[in-house]
């Protein structure tokens, strides 16, 4: 995958937005996606398949409550919240579940189009540890798209109850992106995730300016 290119594409927190548009009518970026405040802050998106705990993580990160349930498709709209990682103010976006970058339902299209029309500093792909193999294809697609991704393996507590063990270091080497294990509902691993996000953002900004 063209991962070596990723840093080049990143929009760091203080970088000016690109204003270039296609000369021809098609493939034009929607205007309303960039608002004044979203330009300043570091932008993080939470994406992943339905019912993997994106909203629980969103609640944990931002302290704002969005509805969480035990069935796929609870989140139908994009929720936005804020948090800070160290000194860094961060805007977090929670998205409806999607199975792949190719949407099937309307709510999947909401999530996908967000990735297509807005640039993020970090895209956190949340997966269910119990179903890692089934969810990795979306990780591949994010990497393939050149999006600055972090893989968050969630529901580790439930996986452990089933006797499942996961080796995140190995996966990290295989994928070439940061991998974090966590159980967001038990508030385990959220701080590590924050630390990795901060690390990722600062290293990308450095490599961009030099």
């Amino acid at each position: 995958m063209q991962c070596n290119k990723c840093p080049m594409k990143l929009k760091c927190s203080d970088s000016p937005r690109q204003k270039k548009r296609g000369l021809l009518g098609f493939f034009r970026k929607k205007k309303e996606t960039t608002t004044a405040e979203s330009v300043k802050m570091t932008q993080i998106a939470l994406v992943g398949m339905p019912n993997v705990g994106k909203s629980v993580l969103f609640n944990g990160l931002t302290g704002t409550y969005v509805t969480v349930s035990n069935y796929p498709g609870t989140t139908v709209e994009v929720s936005r919240g804020q948090t800070s990682i160290g000194e860094l103010p961060v805007a977090v976006v929670d998205t409806p579940g999607m199975y792949s970058l190719l949407p099937i339902t309307e709510e999947e299209k909401v999530a996908r189009d967000l990735l297509l029309f807005q640039s993020f500093d970090v895209v956190i792909h949340v997966v269910d540890a119990k179903n890692l193999g089934r969810m990795l294809p979306l990780t591949f697609q994010l990497i393939e798209a050149g999006l600055p991704s972090i893989l968050a393996i969630n529901m580790m507590d439930e996986a452990q109850q089933l006797g499942i063990e996961i080796n995140p270091e190995y996966l990290e080497r295989e994928l070439g992106i940061p991998v974090v294990t966590m159980a967001a509902a038990a508030n385990f691993g959220v701080n590590e995730l924050k630390a990795r996000v901060a690390e990722y953002v600062s290293s990308n900004c450095l490599s961009r300016s030099y």
Binding site: Q2, K5, K9, K11, Q18, K20, R21, G22, L23, L24, F26, F27, R28, K29, L101, L115, L116, F117, Q118, S119, F120, Q141, E144, A145, G146, L147
Partner: peptide
């Protein structure tokens, strides 16, 4: 067809 390269318009890669 699209004189400017696509990856300037979308934040995702051309291959994608």
């Amino acid at each position: 067809e699209n004189k400017l390269s696509l990856d300037n318009i979308y934040p995702i890669s051309r291959r994608s």
